[in-house]
């Protein structure tokens, strides 16, 4: 066969090949137009400008309190208190930095020996103290202890009561063994209810939340100063986490309040007291604001500094008239043994 004889079949083959490839390409181009032609939706709610929340100002430092003489602040951890030095480091640093002493009292198992008679270790410890901090106790304070604490404040000692929502503490810290307490746990364990009740203050059971005006989460509510107490005069806007509302009566007055908040248990809307004061006693329905995470948020550093001052300052503040006559009155161990009759000493929670 001559080469020329193959020309026609080869040409036919090439033509057929071109036809097939061309048809495929053409079809592919047409088909290509059928692919996803939709466009990315424009989602207004995804625009970063409207999405990113404004951070809560976190600057400043907790100021050091002024006090002429060094004082001793006792933090009670002998009742299974759900609080540690790390939880209130800014307050401790502030006090220690100003020359005061902070002791965490765990029951005096070794220093004081077995408790003698009816005198509880806490009562003994108070004789050396100028201020007492009670936060989130797992067990109730006995009547004798509450009497001692009341006498302590009457004698010029300062008392700071702190509590979170009750369920948090009760599950994590069991009662310490060997304590001369009655062993009865208060119904609202985790809150120093019977101590606070003696001073006309009651801690609530739910927590406060605010769905609109909050510190980037509904459980982080803002507090505003209430009244003209020096404790909160400089703290225009404070932040609390799951704050417990306080109910006050008698001489106790609200110092910090959260307005337009709601209570988790009832969903009730209103203005709730977060911090209250009754003479030498201050109660706050939160412990988180003392923590390193929170102590410099918003104006919290001002409130923490004012609380530090409150603990070590002799004068209770404007309008407060505890018959202290000098902050070091207890340093010689003379505790007024006569308990004041509890006018409204019942601590039944309403």
């Amino acid at each position: 066969m001559q080469l020329g004889d193959l020309a026609q079949p080869l040409a036919t083959f090439g033509l057929a090949l071109l036809l097939v490839v061309g048809a495929t390409a053409g079809t592919a181009i047409v088909a290509g137009e059928l692919t996803d032609t939709s466009t990315q939706p424009d989602v207004e709610s995804f625009q970063p400008d409207s999405l990113l929340p404004t951070p809560v100002a976190d600057e400043g430092a907790v100021g050091a309190p002024d006090a002429a003489t060094p004082k001793t602040v006792v933090v009670d951890v002998s009742h299974g208190n759900d609080v540690s030095r790390a939880d209130m480091q800014p307050l401790v640093n502030s006090l220690v930095g100003a020359g005061h002493e902070v002791q965490f009292f765990s029951g005096g198992s070794s220093n004081f020996g077995p408790p003698a008679g009816a005198e509880s270790p806490l009562s003994t410890e108070l004789q050396e103290a100028d201020a007492l901090v009670i936060a989130n106790p797992a067990t109730a304070y006995s009547d004798d202890e509450v009497d001692s604490i009341e006498a302590f404040t009457t004698g010029g000692g300062k008392l700071l009561l702190l509590a979170d929502t009750p369920t948090r503490a009760s599950s994590s810290t069991p009662a310490l063994p060997g304590l001369p307490t009655t062993g009865s746990t208060a119904a609202a364990s985790g809150q120093p209810t019977n101590v606070a009740g003696r001073f006309g203050i009651t801690f609530g059971s739910g927590y406060l939340y605010d769905m609109t005006d909050n510190a980037n989460n509904f459980q982080y509510v803002y507090g505003d100063p209430a009244g003209s107490d020096e404790l909160s005069a400089e703290a225009d806007r404070t932040v609390f986490r799951e704050a417990v509302p306080l109910v006050t009566r008698d001489a106790a007055t609200t110092v910090v309040e959260s307005s337009d908040a709601r209570l988790s248990s009832t969903r009730e809307n209103g203005t709730f007291a977060v911090a209250a004061r009754s003479g030498n006693v201050v109660a706050v329905g939160d412990t988180w604001f003392l923590s390193p995470d929170a102590a410099t948020l918003a104006d919290n550093e001002q409130l923490v500094g004012d609380i530090a001052s409150f603990l070590v300052t002799d004068q209770g503040g404007a309008g407060l008239a505890p018959a202290s006559g000098g902050g070091a009155a207890l340093s010689d161990g003379t505790v007024d043994p006569s308990p004041t009759p509890p006018a409204n000493g019942t601590n039944t929670t309403a």
Partner: peptide, 19 residues
């Protein structure tokens, strides 16, 4: 940090609720 995580959760909430 915890505060940053809270802000991030708030960001996601705004996007979700806003959508």
């Amino acid at each position: 940090t915890d505060a940053e995580t809270r802000r991030r959760v708030e960001t996601l909430r705004r996007a979700f609720v806003g959508s």
